[in-house]
Write a protein that binds this DNA or RNA. Structure first.
Length: 850
DNA sequence: TTAGGGTTAG
C-alpha cells in the first residue's frame, strides 16, 4: 500500500510549507548526516500539522523509510503529547515495523524513541508493550532502552514489570551501566522497595550526582526525610557537588520535617554554592517556608518573584487551602486572574475549590465549578471529587449528589467524598448505605466509616466493621488504629486493646505522636496504667495531648500523686499546659482526694499559666471538694464563681450530697438543677436515688411521677465483660443471656459463700419501694454482679475479670466485688463512669473513696 | 538516556 494512502487516515495535511533556505547550525548537521534538513526541523514543531507537513516532505525525498527519520518523527509527535500526535507516532512506528526487513542499530533507535515518548507522557503500559514487541522481533535492548523502560515502570507503579526489566538488564550485562543503575535506584524507591533500592546503590562502583540524588530523593519521599538529609552530608563528604535537582530534594525534605532552621541553612548553602535559582528551586523554597509555617517569608519571596510560574501559584494556593487560610488562597487566585499571570490549570482550580470548601463559600465554589466545566476540566475526576466535597461542606448534599451522578468516571475517591460528606452532614444512615453500595472500598473508605462510628459512640459497631475490614483483606494503617484504639478505650476491652497494640508493633505500622497518644489513652481507659505508661515512656516526642492522656490514665486509676508528678515533669520539659490538660489533672486530684493540691493547681491556672478557668474546671473543683465531704466549701465555691453555675456544677454538688447523705443541700441543688435543665434524666434519677437511699419513698414517687410526666426515662444500668475478644453486656435483672442458667447458679453460690463470710446485703442500694426479700433478689441481680459471675465461670482460674459499668458502681456491688476477690482468689477490675476500681484480696484500690 | 516543584476523600 502506498504511504500516501496509509497516511490519509491521519490528520489531514494542508499546504506543504516552504522549507527555509538558510539553515541553522544544528539543522546543517542533520542535513549533512541525513541529506534531509526536514528531519532536523522536526524538533521545532509546535503542532501536529507541522510534523505532518515535514513528514510529507521527507516522503518526497525518499527518506521516509530511514530509521533516523522515523525516530525523529516519533519523538516530535510524542513531544507534542496530544492524543492525535500520539496516534500518529504509533502509526508511523507500525508502518516502519511492517516494512522493515533488516534489523540493525537504527531500528533500536526507533523502538527506543517510542518507548521514551510513551514513558514521558505517562503511557507506561504502551512503553512496556513496545519493549515486548521489540524482544519478539529479535532486537536486544541497549543501555538507552532500560532507563526509559524503568522510568515507565516507575510511573505506572509496575513493580513486577520493573523486576522483569531488571532481570533483562542483568541478562544483557547492562546492569553495570550507571544510567541503568540510577534508574533502578529510582524505580525501587518509588515502588516502596527501599531495601532493594539501597542494595543497588550500595553495589554501584561509580556513583555520580544523579545516583546520590535518586537515593536522597527516594528517602525524602518514603517518609524518611531525616535520612535524606544525613545522606546529603555523606554525599558532600564524598566530594560530589550537589546540583539544583539535589537541592530541590533537600529543600522538600526540610518541608516534610517542618524544620525551618534546617531549611534556612540549606538556603544559605545554596547561596554559597553559587547555584542559580531556577523555577523548581524557587518553588521548593516557597513550599518549604509555607510548610514550616513561615507564611510571611514565603509571601515576601513570592511577591519579589518577577516571573511566577503556574506551579508557584499552585504551591502557594494549595498551602493556603490546606492550612485553612482559604481567604488568602482565593486572593491569590484573583491576583493570578487579574494580572498577566499564567492561566489557571486543573491544579489551581482544585486548590480554589478546596479553599471554597473550607470557607463554605458556595457562590465562589459554584463559579469555580463553572470555570472548570467551561475549560473542559470535567474530564478530570479530581476536580469533580473536590467539587463534591465542596458542595458537601457547604451543606448542599443535593448538589453534591448531582455532580456525583453525572460523573462519567467515578473513582473510589468520588464515593469516599460522598460518604464523608454525608457523615459531616450528620446523615450516618445515607453514608452507611453508600458505603455498602460502593463497588470498591479502599483503606480510606474503611477509615472514614470506622471513624464515623467512633464519633457517634457506636464503639461495638466500629470494632465489628474493623473486623469485617480485616476479613476482606484490607490492611489497617495508623489512622484506622487511632479510631480502633479509641473504641477499645471506651469499651474498656483490654484484650482487644492488647491485640491492637501488638498488631501495631508486629505489622510495623508507623506510630506517630497521635497513634501513641491514642494507645496511652486506650490503655488508661482499659485499666492498664502500666501499659499506658510503657507506651508513654517510649514516646520520642510528647505534646500536651500526650501528657494529657498519661495524666488521664492516672486519673482513671485514682492516682492523683503520680498525676501531679507527671504534671511537674511536663512543665520541666517545657511543654505548655492547655485547658484540656487541667481538666484531666483536676479530675485526677479529685479521684485521689488531694484537696490542697487541687486548690493550688486551680489557682495557678490563671496566675502562672494565663489560662482562665472555664466552667468545666469549676465543675472539677466542686467535685473535688464534694467528694472529700467539704460540702459547705463546695457551695461557697459555687457562690463565688464568676460565671453563672450550670447544670454540671449543681449535678456535681448533688452527687456529693448523695455520697455524704446531706438531704437538705441535695434538695437545694436539685431545685437549682430543675430550673436549669428539667429534662436531663441523670439529675432526676440522682435525686430520686438520694430520697430512696434514705427510705423517703413518697419523695421518690414524686420525682418519678415528674419524670414520667416529662417523658424522662431512666438509663438502665449495664455492665459488660470481655471474654475472648467478645463483649458480653448485661443489664440489671437480665434474663436473655444464653448461659443465664449457669450465671444465676453461680450467683446463688457466691451469695451463699458471702453470707457465710458474714456479708449483709446493703439494702439501701435498692432504689425501689419493695419488700425486703424482693430487694435482696433485685440487688443480687445488679448488672455488675451478673458480669462478675459470668466472668468467673468463663475465664480460667486466676484470670482477672474486667467489667465496664455505664453508671457509678453501687455500694453493695462494691462490697460484693471486694469479698469475691478474697473468697475466689481472683482479681476484679471494674471501670464505672468515672474511674477504675482494682479489687484484690478483699480490698479496692480506691480505698473506698469514690 | 537516569534524578527535582503544585493535586481531591479519613
Amino acid at each position: 500500500m502506498a504511504v500516501a494512502t496509509q497516511l490519509s487516515t491521519l490528520p489531514s495535511v494542508t499546504a506543504l510549507p516552504e522549507l527555509p533556505t538558510r539553515l541553522h547550525q544544528h539543522e546543517k548537521r542533520a542535513a549533512s548526516q541525513n541529506s534531509a534538513p526536514a528531519i532536523g526541523l522536526l524538533k521545532n514543531c509546535k503542532t501536529l500539522n507541522e510534523v505532518s507537513q515535514l513528514h510529507c516532505h521527507i516522503i518526497k525525498t525518499g527518506l521516509s523509510g530511514r530509521s533516523f527519520a522515523v525516530a525523529n518523527i516519533v519523538s516530535a509527535c510524542t513531544d507534542l503529547a496530544t492524543p492525535g500526535s500520539l496516534a500518529y507516532a504509533q502509526k508511523v512506528f507500525e508502518q516502519y515495523v511492517d516494512e522493515e526487513e533488516d534489523v540493525d542499530d537504527g531500528s533500536l533507535f526507533v523502538y527506543n524513541s517510542l518507548i521514551r515518548g510513551y514513558s514521558q507522557v505517562g503511557l507506561s503500559q504502551s512503553a512496556v508493550s513496545v519493549h515486548v514487541q521489540m524482544v519478539e522481533n529479535g532486537l536486544v535492548p541497549d543501555k538507552y532502552t532500560f532507563p526509559f523502560l524503568l522510568s515507565a515502570c516507575t510511573k505506572m507503579n509496575g513493580f513486577e514489570e520493573g523486576l522483569q526489566v531488571h532481570g533483562a538488564a542483568v541478562k544483557t550485562s547492562l546492569d553495570g551501566d550507571v544510567y541503568v543503575q540510577n534508574s533502578l535506584v529510582h524505580f525501587y524507591f518509588e515502588c516502596g522497595d527501599v531495601a532493594d533500592g539501597q542494595k543497588v546503590f550500595d553495589g554501584m562502583p561509580d556513583r555520580n550526582v544523579v545516583s546520590w540524588t535518586s537515593l536522597i530523593c527516594g528517602y525524602a519521599r518514603r517518609e524518611n526525610p531525616r535520612k535524606a538529609v544525613s545522606l546529603f552530608f555523606d554525599m558532600v563528604d564524598s566530594g560530589i557537588r550537589p546540583n539544583s535537582v539535589t537541592m530541590v530534594c533537600i529543600i522538600s525534605a526540610c518541608s516534610k520535617l517542618q524544620d525551618l532552621s534546617l531549611g534556612e541553612r540549606v538556603c544559605a548553602y545554596i547561596n554559597n554554592l553559587g547555584l542559580k535559582l531556577n523555577t523548581h528551586m524557587v518553588n521548593a523554597t516557597v513550599d518549604m517556608y509555607m510548610k514550616c509555617g513561615a507564611f510571611g517569608t514565603a509571601k515576601l519571596i513570592f511577591d519579589g518573584c518577577e516571573e511566577r510560574s503556574l506551579v508557584l501559584y499552585n504551591t502557594v494556593m494549595s498551602n493556603y487551602a490546606r492550612e485553612g487560610m482559604a481567604k488568602e488562597a482565593i486572593d491569590t487566585l484573583n491576583e493570578m486572574l487579574s494580572g498577566e499571570g499564567p492561566r489557571p490549570d486543573r491544579v489551581t482550580l482544585l486548590s480554589a475549590i478546596s479553599a471554597c470548601a473550607h470557607l463554605n463559600e458556595l457562590v465562589l465554589g459554584k463559579s469555580c465549578h463553572a470555570y472548570a466545566l467551561r475549560n473542559e476540566m470535567q474530564g478530570w475526576e479530581s476536580i469533580l471529587n473536590a467539587t463534591i466535597d465542596m458542595y458537601m461542606k457547604c451543606g448542599e448534599t443535593g448538589l453534591a449528589c448531582k455532580v456525583f451522578e453525572r460523573m462519567p468516571n467515578r473513582t473510589t475517591v468520588s464515593w469516599n467524598s460522598l460518604v464523608a460528606g454525608y457523615i459531616n452532614n450528620s446523615d450516618l444512615e445515607s453514608a452507611q448505605k453508600i458505603f455498602q453500595e460502593m463497588p470498591e472500598r479502599d483503606l480510606f473508605s474503611w477509615n472514614t466509616m470506622i471513624g464515623a462510628l467512633v464519633q457517634v459512640s457506636s464503639f461495638e459497631e466500629a470494632i465489628e466493621l474493623f473486623r469485617t475490614m480485616q476479613r476482606e483483606g484490607i490492611k489497617p494503617d495508623r489512622v484506622t488504629l487511632v479510631s480502633v484504639a479509641s473504641a477499645c478505650g471506651y469499651l474498656g476491652a483490654l484484650g482487644l486493646a492488647k491485640w491492637v497494640h501488638r498488631y501495631m508493633i508486629e505489622n510495623q505500622i508507623h506510630c506517630d505522636i497521635k497513634l501513641s497518644t491514642a494507645m496511652v489513652d486506650m490503655f488508661g481507659r482499659c485499666g492498664d496504667p502500666q501499659s499506658a505508661m510503657l507506651v508513654f515512656n517510649n514516646m520520642k516526642e510528647r505534646d500536651v495531648s500526650a501528657w494529657t492522656a498519661a495524666i488521664g490514665a492516672m486519673a482513671m486509676e485514682g492516682n492523683g500523686r503520680r498525676a501531679m508528678e507527671l504534671f511537674r515533669e511536663m512543665i520541666a520539659e517545657g511543654v505548655k499546659p492547655d485547658e484540656v490538660l487541667f481538666v484531666g489533672l483536676l479530675t485526677a486530684l479529685s479521684h485521689g482526694g488531694m484537696v490542697e493540691e487541687g486548690w493550688s493547681i486551680f489557682k495557678s491556672m490563671e496566675e502562672t499559666y494565663g489560662i482562665s478557668p472555664s466552667i468545666v474546671h469549676c465543675g472539677c473543683m466542686v467535685d473535688l471538694l464534694g467528694r472529700a465531704g467539704m460540702l459547705e466549701q463546695a457551695l461557697d465555691f459555687i457562690k463565688g464563681m464568676q460565671s453563672e453555675p450550670n447544670d454540671v456544677i449543681w449535678a456535681a454538688l448533688l452527687s456529693a450530697c448523695r455520697k455524704h447523705n446531706n438531704l437538705e443541700m441535695a434538695s437545694y441543688a436539685a431545685e437549682r438543677l430543675d430550673k436549669l435543665n428539667p429534662y436531663k434524666s441523670g439529675i432526676s434519677v440522682l435525686l430520686s436515688n438520694i430520697y430512696a437511699s434514705e427510705g423517703k419513698w413518697s419523695d421518690v414517687a414524686k420525682v418519678r411521677l415528674q419524670m414520667k410526666e416529662k417523658g424522662i426515662q431512666k438509663r438502665p444500668g449495664s455492665s459488660s465483660v470481655e471474654i475472648s475478644g467478645r463483649i458480653h453486656e448485661f443489664t440489671s435483672g437480665d434474663e436473655f443471656h444464653p448461659e443465664m442458667r449457669h450465671i444465676t447458679g453461680m450467683l446463688d453460690e457466691i451469695n451463699c459463700r458471702l453470707r457465710d463470710a458474714g456479708h449483709e446485703p446493703d439494702l439501701k442500694a435498692v432504689l425501689l419501694d419493695v419488700d425486703e426479700e424482693n430487694k435482696e433478689l433485685l440487688l443480687s441481680r445488679h448488672s455488675e454482679k451478673l458480669a462478675i459471675a459470668y466472668g468467673l465461670i468463663s475465664t480460667g482460674h486466676k484470670m482477672p475479670i474486667r467489667v465496664v459499668k455505664n453508671l457509678r458502681i453501687c455500694s453493695d456491688c462494691h462490697a460484693f466485688a471486694k469479698l469475691v476477690t478474697a473468697i475466689y482468689d481472683r482479681e476484679i477490675i471494674i471501670r464505672d463512669n468515672s474511674r477504675f476500681h482494682f479489687f484484690s484480696q478483699g480490698l479496692c484500690s480506691c480505698g473506698d473513696y469514690w
